[in-house]
């Protein structure tokens, strides 16, 4: 299964590209000129999202460095023990929505501390694999088009993250405990 999926993910991109190009050839689309025209937009978008990314990343980096997470961790400890959630995984639950690179760092740290076959590692891996960096996605996507009023988008994303965390704890306890 995993071999098949790995092969699929290597082949899928070249297949898509070749298919698009062959179709363009068939329709006599000037592929090179159109490609350059599209690629030009990529640069503009990347520059446009910089201010939004700065705002979001400064916020989340500050929050992580301030030690606020450790304070929340101590506060939550009795609840975590009750649901058999390893204390090591609290950090990953709190950083998952804030920073993608930090999350991967925390996952590596949990593997180091508790061993790669521990329950904490499995739970952390499921949490990491099943969600996205909500704040980053919001700043990139809305920043690219200049949206300043996010309305309910962020709240819906965060609520879904919370459902995901609860589901991860529940599903992992069924699978791995």
């Amino acid at each position: 299964m995993i071999n098949f999926l790995n092969t699929l993910s290597i082949w899928i991109l070249p297949l898509i590209i070749v298919f698009i190009l062959v179709f363009a050839l068939y329709k006599k689309t000037p592929a090179y000129e159109v490609f350059v025209e599209g690629a030009n937009e990529g640069f503009k978008i990347a520059v446009k999202i910089i201010p939004y990314l700065i705002a979001i990343m400064v916020c989340t980096a500050l929050f992580r460095a301030s030690g606020a997470i450790e304070i929340i961790e101590n506060f939550l400890k009795p609840v975590l023990d009750y649901f058999k959630i390893p204390i090591e995984t609290t950090i990953i639950m709190l950083t998952r929505s804030l920073s993608g690179s930090a999350t991967l760092g925390v996952l590596a740290d949990i593997i180091n501390q508790t061993g790669v076959n521990s329950y904490a590692t499995k739970l952390a891996a499921v949490i990491t694999g099943s969600s996205e960096t909500t704040f980053y996605v919001a700043s990139v996507y809305f920043g690219a088009v200049g949206i300043k009023k996010f309305r309910h988008a962020l709240l819906a994303g965060i609520l879904a993250d919370i459902v995901g965390l609860i589901a991860a704890v529940w599903i992992c306890s069924i699978f791995f405990l």
């Binding site: 179709f23 490609f35 025209e37 690629a39 990529g42």
Partner: peptide
């Protein structure tokens, strides 16, 4: 992001125009 965005938006543009 610039490189990867440029590449994919170029490819998508071809798919769009064709």
């Amino acid at each position: 992001l610039i490189g990867i965005m440029g590449f994919w938006l170029g490819i998508v543009k071809i798919a769009e125009k064709s």
